[in-house]
Design a protein around this nucleic acid. Structure first.
Lengths: 195, 195
DNA sequence: GTCTATATACGGATAGAC
DNA sequence: GTCTATCCGTATATAGAC
């Protein structure tokens, strides 16, 4: 690709996404202006519209990209055969993926209200796909007689809420190491659905 | 109190709170304008300032009132002596209090970013007080040898996140009754910290 | 691709009449 | 206590020059 004078699309593009993500996570979608994003990127507000058709699309792209990356990362994992080992693997994968991405998770959960109905449906479908991965594990383990629970769907949502809640308080500079967090939550999850 | 002409403070006051709560839960604090609140209350925007000094205070009052009501409701509960029974009682109380107050919970969790640092600290202190109620139960049960967990603080936050996550998906017109939800979550919590 | 300038609308908050 | 009117600032998005 030939480059035009003053062109920085390969730098500015990702920078717009990163900056928007950080600011929206910090202040909320409605509270962040395109001018504010542009200022932190280092361009004028009008220039942002070379990278997104409007503010709504910018938000949607952030949320969809996060969910797609999550699903892709899960697909790439090598999964154990044993249901108990698979559940522990899911727990640790979930924590390992989400903890370093607090901003993405924050936005993906908190800004659902600010999506158009069409965009909301798309993000929800992706989230549902991810939930199904855990529910499959729970159902397989129940069928195998190593898990016991009253309702696999409700349990799935309960466990994911517990795991994802981590990003609301965990700070990597805190008193607890990631490995210890994985162990604690691994225990809670395993015991909660044990026979 | 004598009433002035055109005075409706005893009606308008609560209505402002209710309307603001609903709109903020639905669209987010920054996305809701004082004009919009006023329109749904049925007054002009200027009249709102008879009930709140500014928009920030309106938000803070909603969040503080919710947390104070939660703590007061918990204090008023009759608590069992046995740690296992106390934990189950806490689980059911938490669900019973939070489920009918989805808007309050939503706002109290999602709009922390939009509080001034001073107001944030006050709300966080109240939340911490509530968490301590559960942690006390967990520690007592551990001391009594009926619970086992790696870290009572982390476990407290994990369990509260799991329980509160309910309001993100539970709809009272759905397929599951509240009593059943209480039973499902009661099982998960009890087993998660069992010896 | 980025800039400046602008169209058009809406924001929080206040003043003063009733 | 509520209204009308307004101050003053900022919002998204676009047009056209470079």
């Amino acid at each position: 690709m030939a480059r035009k004078q003053g062109s920085h699309s390969d730098i500015t593009g990702p920078k717009v996404q990163q900056t928007a993500l950080r600011l929206i996570a910090q202040h909320g979608f409605a509270a962040v202006s395109m001018r504010q994003i542009a200022a932190e990127v280092g361009v004028q507000a009008g220039a942002l519209y070379n990278y997104t058709s409007d503010k709504q699309t910018l938000l949607f792209d952030l949320m969809r990209d996060h969910m797609v990356a999550l699903l892709a990362a899960w697909e790439a994992e090598a999964k154990p055969d044993d249901p108990v080992a698979r559940l522990d693997h899911f727990t640790r994968f979930h924590i390992r993926f989400h903890l370093p991405r607090a901003d993405q998770v924050f936005v993906a959960y908190m800004e659902l209200r600010n999506l158009t109905p069409e965009n909301f449906a798309k993000v929800e479908a992706l989230r549902r796909q991810y939930e199904d991965r855990l529910e499959d594990i729970l159902r397989d383990g129940t069928a195998a007689g190593v898990f016991a629970m009253q309702d696999s769907r409700v349990t799935t949502r309960a466990l994911i809420a517990m795991l994802t809640g981590l990003i609301n308080w965990y700070r990597s500079d805190g008193r607890i190491e990631t490995a210890r967090i994985e162990a604690i939550y691994g225990d809670l999850v395993r015991k909660a659905v044990a026979v």
